[in-house]
Computed example of a mutant assay.
Amino acid sequence: MQVEQTSLSGVLILTPRRIGDDRGFFSETWNRDTMLGIGIDIAFVQDNHSLSREAGVVRGLHYQAPPHAQDKLVRAGAGAVLDVVVDIRQGSETYGKWTGVELSAENGRQVFIPKGFLHGFVTLRPNSELLYKCSDVYAPDCDGSVYFADPDLGINWGIDPARAILSPKDRNAPRFADFKSPFRYKE
C-alpha cells in the first residue's frame, strides 16, 4: 500500500498494489492489519456506492455531525472524479482549506477522510461510480452540507459552477460564513 500525506492533517491518499496480467488485475483495497500498520484503526460499518450518469455532477460538500460523525475511505469503481476534502475542525491551522485528488478506476487511488472534514466530488467522466466505507451509519438528523462553490472556500472544481449538475439539497446548501462547525481540532 502506497501512502501519501496531503496538505490536510489526517487526510491520506492510499494506493493499493495491483497484480495484473492480460486478464485484468487484482487489488486488495481494504485489509484491517495493513491499515493498522499505517495508523488507521477504524471499524467500518457501512459501504456506500453512488453512480453519476453525466460528467459535471457535483455531490457535496457533505458532513455528518457527532454523535454519528463518519470516517470514510473513498475510491472510484468506474469513471473518474475530482474528490474534494475541506478541513472544518475548529482550531486547526488548515481550517477552511481544501485538497483535491483525482480518483479513477484506472489509477486505483483511495482517499482516507477522517471525521471533521467536508467531502464532495465532481464527476470527470460519464457513468462514474464512487465506492466508500463509513465508520458510522447514515443518520439524517446529523446530515449537513456547505455550498460547493462558496467563494470563501475558493475550490477549483475544474468546471463552471453555473453548469454543475446538483441536487436541490446541494444547490441550496448554506454558505461557509453561515456554517457553525460541530468539530474541534485535537492535537
Rank of each mutant, 00 (worst) to 15 (best):
I40K: 09
S167Q: 09
D33M: 11
D152W: 04
D150N: 00
K180M: 09
V101M: 13
A173V: 01
R17S: 11
Y95M: 02
E4R: 08
K133L: 13
L36R: 11
S7I: 07
I19T: 11
M35I: 05
L82P: 05
N31Y: 08
Q90V: 13
Q5S: 06
S9K: 09
I38T: 09
G20M: 02
W157E: 01
F112R: 03
G56A: 04
C142Y: 06
D160L: 13
M1Y: 08
K169P: 12
L73V: 04
G20A: 06
S7P: 03
V57E: 09
R175L: 10
D71C: 15
D152L: 08
L124T: 10
R184P: 07
G144L: 03
I88H: 00
H49T: 03
M1H: 04
R32A: 13
N172P: 07
G10L: 04
G10K: 06
Q5P: 00
H62R: 00
Q110K: 12
G144A: 06
Y95Q: 03
R175A: 06
I165S: 09
C134D: 10
G39Y: 03
Y132S: 01
D33C: 07
P168M: 00
V84S: 03
N31T: 10
V101T: 15
H49L: 04
R89K: 12
E28S: 04
A78W: 09
P151A: 12
K97F: 00
I155H: 14
H119S: 13
S145R: 11
F117G: 02
S104C: 10
V45G: 08
A164G: 04
G56M: 01
D143P: 11
P174G: 06
V81L: 10
P168G: 01
T6K: 08
K169M: 00
G79F: 03
P140F: 14
H68A: 11
G60M: 00
E4H: 06
D33T: 13
E129A: 11
T6F: 10
R89E: 14
K169H: 07
V122H: 04
N31C: 06
A164W: 02
T99L: 01
T34Q: 15
V101C: 11
G10S: 05
S50H: 10
A149P: 09
W30T: 02
Y147C: 05
R18H: 15
V81F: 14
A65H: 05
D83G: 03
I155V: 14
D136E: 14
L130M: 13
D87L: 08
P182A: 04
N156Q: 08
G158F: 02
R17P: 09
F26Q: 02
F26D: 05
W30C: 01
L14Q: 00
F117T: 07
G56I: 02
N31D: 07
R59V: 04
R53M: 11
A69H: 05
R171T: 12
A173T: 02
V57C: 13
P66H: 08
C134N: 12
G79E: 07
G108P: 13
S27F: 00
A149F: 04
L73C: 03
D170C: 02
T94H: 11
